[in-house]
């Protein structure tokens, strides 16, 4: 396959960026999207040019490191992560636009790499449970009803890639935050911090400068892990409940 790539190039956080056009040839349909970018970078390095910086780690679709908005879609046309997107989703001669996640809370570090530590700070503000240290508790010591376990697992699937923020027209982190809140709030292990968790995590989310939710549903459509839009509904319910109880921890 021969492709034309239009890639966002930006030297650093403060430099202005622009789309640069590159031609790549000899792309196999079986390559992943990241392998296609590797091919481009090998050519750029040989030519003495600066390779395109992009985030990647496991390349198995489970770590949440890869990003990229491909032709306007977070993680590209397939409902998966960019590393699991294959070039068979494109045609020979296609022009592909590659841009970084766009959000005020995700500043560009270089080219296609953005700083997602805002997500880490949201997790730090409440995405944990209080657990005794020492020996592991007996596996059946705390019974969890099957529907609750399923609900928790569904939300625990979130890999924190940020595609929800990238896809949302408001740059909102509601789907990410709700996945993390719901995952722990439904379980008995998460019960001690149930109220403070949702209040503090939503508070931190707002503090980071993410937008609000207008229920466009773009986040759930883009999510490679299929976190449902109703995750946000459920978090709203938790937030309103916690706000009534007003048990905010002094932090």
């Amino acid at each position: 396959m021969k492709l034309t790539l239009r890639v966002w190039r930006q030297q650093n956080a403060d430099a202005p960026g622009a789309m640069s056009t590159y031609e790549v040839d000899g792309i196999s349909k079986d390559m992943s999207f990241l392998e296609m970018l590797d091919t481009l970078n090998e050519e750029l390095i040989v030519k003495g040019d600066d390779p395109v910086a992009f985030d990647h780690d496991c390349r198995e679709g489970i770590c949440g490191a890869c990003s990229l908005v491909i032709n306007g879609d977070a993680h590209g046309p397939e409902r998966t992560t960019t590393c699991q997107l294959h070039m068979r989703s494109f045609k020979d001669g296609d022009t592909i636009d590659i841009e970084p996640w766009r959000a005020a809370a995700f500043p560009v570090v270089k080219d296609l790499v953005v700083d997602r530590t805002a997500f880490d700070r949201i997790i730090q503000s409440g995405g944990y449970i209080s657990a005794p240290t020492g020996s592991a508790p007996d596996a059946h010591a705390t019974p969890v009803p099957k529907p609750d376990a399923d609900f928790a697992f569904e939300h625990a699937e979130c890999i924190g890639c940020g595609a929800c923020v990238a896809a949302c027209p408001n740059g909102s982190a509601m789907l990410f935050t709700s996945a993390k809140v719901n995952h722990l709030n439904v379980l008995p292990q998460g019960a001690p911090e149930r109220e403070s968790r949702v209040l503090d995590m939503v508070g931190q989310m707002d503090h980071e400068g993410f937008g609000g939710c207008t229920l466009t549903g773009e986040c759930a459509t883009a999510c490679p892990k299929g976190i449902p839009l109703f995750s946000i509904t459920h978090m709203n319910k938790e937030w309103l409940r916690a706000n009534r109880k007003d048990k905010r921890t002094a932090s």
Partner: peptide, 13 residues
Amino acid sequence: RDIKARPTGYVHK
């Protein structure tokens, strides 16, 4: 707030 949260738009709309 929403508009401020996406200061740079996407080229591919």
